[in-house]
Computed example of a mutant assay.
Amino acid sequence: MGLEEYWVAISRGGVLYGAGFFVTRHFVVTSVGCLPDACLGSEVELRTARGLGLRGIVDEIAEDVGLVLVHVVVPPRTDYPTPQADRAVKGDTWRAPYRPGPALPALSG
């Protein structure tokens, strides 16, 4: 699995809201800033780096830490990347390929 395959674009009604990333095969995490008006049970559209469209349902909103957990609803026998666990170490580089709007800077570190 390449680095880009962890990311998903998140949209609603065809409008791109931002991005998230797979934390398990069935869950994506994103920031509250990407889905500011999300409520439990609301549906979102997910698109993987390979272009696969998936359906997502907001499962949990943790306002205190600014995160939203989205349950990935996958049709049977759908092939898509499964995240592999690893450890981050001090000095690892990272970047976020999506952002909520073109006027906002891309995140990296």
Rank of each mutant, 00 (worst) to 15 (best):
G18K: 00
E45N: 15
C34E: 01
V68L: 06
A103F: 12
A106N: 08
L104T: 07
I57W: 10
G101C: 13
T48N: 02
S108K: 13
D79H: 13
P102G: 05
R95I: 13
D86P: 03
A49W: 04
V65R: 08
V44C: 00
P83W: 00
V89M: 08
A103S: 14
L104A: 10
G20C: 14
D37Q: 09
E43W: 13
T24M: 00
P81I: 08
T93D: 14
L52N: 05
D86G: 15
W94Y: 15
A103K: 11
D64K: 03
V72G: 03
C34T: 14
H26C: 10
L35K: 00
P100E: 00
A106Y: 11
D92L: 09
S108Y: 14
V72T: 06
A88Y: 12
G41N: 02
P36G: 04
E60W: 14
L107H: 12
V15L: 10
P83M: 02
R55E: 06
G56Y: 02
M1P: 04
E43L: 14
G20P: 09
C34S: 14
P105D: 02
G109C: 14
Q84E: 06
H71W: 11
D86W: 13
A62N: 13
V8C: 06
V58M: 07
P76A: 06
V58G: 10
A85S: 06
V23L: 05
L3G: 15
G56N: 01
W7I: 05
R55G: 07
V70F: 00
G33Y: 10
H71T: 12
T30Q: 01
P75N: 07
L104M: 14
R95S: 15
